[in-house]
Design a protein around this nucleic acid. Structure first.
Lengths: 182, 182
DNA sequence: GCAAGCTATGCAAATTATTGCATTGGGCGT
DNA sequence: ACGCCCAATGCAATAATTTGCATAGCTTGC
């Protein structure tokens, strides 16, 4: 399980509260790791107890105060060691693909709709990432080393997304021909 | 959760035992849904109790006997209804990408090794899928309708895999240059 | 001054998935 | 005859994740 490490990674450069972490997991890092706010808050407590994070209550104007977490030296060390360990192969899970195995005249129309919806979602996310990449990672070779890693991860997300869109268009074309039969 | 539906989908055309299902989840369908044998056996019991599957003990020569499951009409109906429902967006999780966010001179070498290992894994799976596609799905337009869906899923897997390999090569090139600095 | 709505944090229960065994039957090698 | 490996099925405990609340501050509009 890499949730604690994903959280620590998110805190490498910016101190954040649980709420802010949850939002950032819906964005950049979330392309590779997804977590709900409940999971995050719970994990923050655990990481605090272990001494990997320190926390500080910060008052805000016009908002309730938040608890901002930052990586301790111990946390940094543990994270660095984790990186050197073995990665587990990722587990893919996708309803839509399973549903495609069930393609029939009864459900083509519905699957087309779902594919279009998914296409839209991926396109939005892709647009966001492309913007981040253009903005902050335009000249990858010039980046400091850690940022090069972030760039590569981002590039992976972008290229996977673009490939998905291409596939999606092909699939929609084929499904449209199937639908025409009914 | 789509595990029960993934299992039923796998049983659409072929009757299988839990052991065979577990293997098939390591292969074709497993590109989109992964499950351990424990999960599968347990789910098979549940699906049996609900009347979605029927089972039959089959004796084998040179092997212990197996319990072969087949979809009942009720199961088929439930599956068909499930397809018409909403799909949840997939959840991506990948250690390696999180690790890339931690890129440093201390871990480049290790990340290169891990990327190469991952590349190898993807390539093997890709090879398998390409072979299946060439063998059974060479002329997609000529396939019966359900098979067209399977073809599309397979095509998604193949194109994602190929894109990953391209990204991987770029990433390895970049990491090699980083490593040269140390 | 009250409802609606966003920020912010959290608990508890239920569901899903993983990890670590355990068992039975038979083949194969020595 | 013994140990080892593979096929096949399963249980139990733990870990991870989701679902469904609950609470509290502070703002804005009515």
């Amino acid at each position: 399980m890499a949730l604690p490490h994903a959280i620590m990674t998110a805190l490498l450069e910016d101190n954040m509260s649980g709420f802010e972490l949850a939002k950032s997991f819906d964005r950049a890092l979330g392309f590779f790791w997804r977590a709900s706010h409940q999971q995050i808050y719970q994990e923050l407590h655990k990481l605090g107890e272990k001494g990997y994070l320190s926390s500080e209550t910060v008052a805000q104007q016009a908002k309730p105060s938040k608890i901002e977490y930052s990586l301790t030296d111990k946390g940094r060390q543990v994270l660095a060691e984790w990186v050197l360990g073995e990665s587990k192969v990722q587990e893919a899970k996708d309803d839509l693909m399973v549903k495609l195995y069930n393609l029939s005249l009864d459900n083509v129309a519905h699957l087309i709709t779902e594919l279009e919806r998914r296409r839209e979602l991926v396109m939005q996310r892709l647009y966001l990432y492309e913007r981040i990449r253009r903005r902050h990672y335009d000249d990858p070779e010039a980046l400091p080393i850690r940022r090069k890693g972030v760039y590569l991860a981002l590039a992976a997300g972008v290229s996977q997304g673009e490939e998905f869109l291409r596939w999606c268009d092909d699939a929609l074309t084929m499904l449209a021909r199937v639908e025409a039969l009914s």
